[in-house]
Design a protein around this nucleic acid. Sequence first.
DNA 1: CTGAAAGCGCTTACAG
DNA 2: CTGAAAGCGCTTACAG
Lengths: 331, 331
Amino acid sequence: MAGVSTATVSRALSGPAQLRAGTLARVTAAVQQMGYHPNVAARTLRAGRTMLALVVVPDIANPFFSDVLRGIEDELSRHGYGLLIGNLGNSRRKEAQMVDVVRAGQVDGVVLLNGRVPRRDGGDLAHGAVPIVAVCEAVPGAGFPQVEVRNREAAQEAVAHLAALGHRRIAYLGGPARNVLERDRQAGFRDGLAACGLPADEARFLRGDFTFAAGVAAAGLLLRMRPRPTAVFAANDEMAIGLLKTVSRAGLAVPGELSVVGFDGIAFADYVEPTLSTFRQPRRALGQQGAALLVRAMSGERIEPGAARVRLRAEWLPRDSTGPVPEESIP
Amino acid sequence: MAGVSTATVSRALSGPAQLRAGTLARVTAAVQQMGYHPNVAARTLRAGRTMLALVVVPDIANPFFSDVLRGIEDELSRHGYGLLIGNLGNSRRKEAQMVDVVRAGQVDGVVLLNGRVPRRDGGDLAHGAVPIVAVCEAVPGAGFPQVEVRNREAAQEAVAHLAALGHRRIAYLGGPARNVLERDRQAGFRDGLAACGLPADEARFLRGDFTFAAGVAAAGLLLRMRPRPTAVFAANDEMAIGLLKTVSRAGLAVPGELSVVGFDGIAFADYVEPTLSTFRQPRRALGQQGAALLVRAMSGERIEPGAARVRLRAEWLPRDSTGPVPEESIP
DNA sequence: CTGAAAGCGCTTACAG
DNA sequence: CTGAAAGCGCTTACAG
């Protein structure tokens, strides 16, 4: 239609500077008029890049990841990359599928939100040829860039805030033992106790699985502890909210008789009564910075080790679920 | 490695029944050993299908869609399809991008969660060659399959429940005037008033934008209405929760002095105090059924008009925010 | 049942 | 500055 070869059309679309103005104009007009769009599969096959990144999500139904995804999507799409979502949903089969997607050359890079490298019998995702970035949950010992929050420091800070309010018997409600976040947050909690000169009483360490139900269950145990803790730090908001609602219903005043601190800063933490004191993870920024590193790596840039470990601050959000230790419990 | 042609390898992978058992075994072994994976771009280019579906989401950070996405993902991945996420985020530019993705042959089908067909200057997404399905928000007058909840019937039911508790002054808090959900739910609300013999007093119709903040703002107006309504139906949970929290804080007893009903059944509706009576949308099922229709259409099946309009029931969840009309307000 | 060969729609060295 | 041509890695009618 423009009286030129396909090569010239291709150049008009990808490197307009190579063409004479008149030619470019004719091609552009024809492209516009006929609504021509280059076939992506052909371009991918020839160019050897898909302009797609895979994001591995542990559970797409978990609203925590919505904002992280948003940050990733923003950044990738700004650079012309699309987003392929891989939902793990706790399935081994899905994990293997992720590896296959990479091996089949379906993506140019991977963002891992699940804290581990997907495996399958014949090896793992890291042995593919594409760059990887971990976001939110770090992968211990991995050689690729990681973007997370200062979990350990924040957990230590939680103890300091509670201790400053006079609390000395502080319980801990954690996640599954092998989870990275659980490890970091529990370690930080113990740091905090030590820093404040408080003993680490193992009877006050409870284990959950990051769900609302785990918080409900932990509330039952906590109510029966003697002497009863005057504060509790939960390793995420959902458990904190489950616990808070259950102890309130049982007649315990929050924060009058028990202070509660969560972690993450999910939207609901501000809807409960009383509103939950917590640490806000900058979720969108986490996603964005992770995606930015991935874009650089996908463009062939080598990420220098110094830039490969981004650790953002979790912001302390003091709200209504924390208060001074009850009078009668002061020794 | 197996001593066969590439054609035979291709057959081993896509139609194993065509091969002699011995050949198949040799090929399979070689494939396994060398970790061979067919290049997706080449397959796509040759086969003319991408095995990918595009999901257009109005706002990926809105947790409402998480579960819907989960249902879509489940169903698509069961049939070997991947999921390309397109986040609109209220941007015109993004809408045009969606059209381009389809025109460039990047996907075999589209799920629309945003209640309208993405457009760009040179036409719209529906004029592409791929099948479309709308989920959650119907597209008025569209010729493709749609899966939604019985919004109008549920809203009518809300009025019936409130009227049965003795309420006669019921306010309505809606969304943006042109939104499909708003139209259906307001129409249902009016149906309900009529069915219960209650007048539709226009002063009791408030407008919001489906956000928590809109609920907060509406609470202020509601508190100043004379005579004050004894119940309010909000067109979604977030507005209902914003309103509920604000009137409670202002000293109004819920449900003692005001009953509140929401819509959607988001997780937080069960965390607020008092817990919110609402209608639960079967979000995962909506996603799943929409995806199932799309899979059929992508396989070339014609969806008969009868199956093209799926309308699921929204389940009434009576909780603690609704109660009998206050004594003194009975005429 | 298997192989040789064409061709999907691009991009990009290589010429001119 | 532009065109002719090769080739990306598959799949699939067409032979045999």
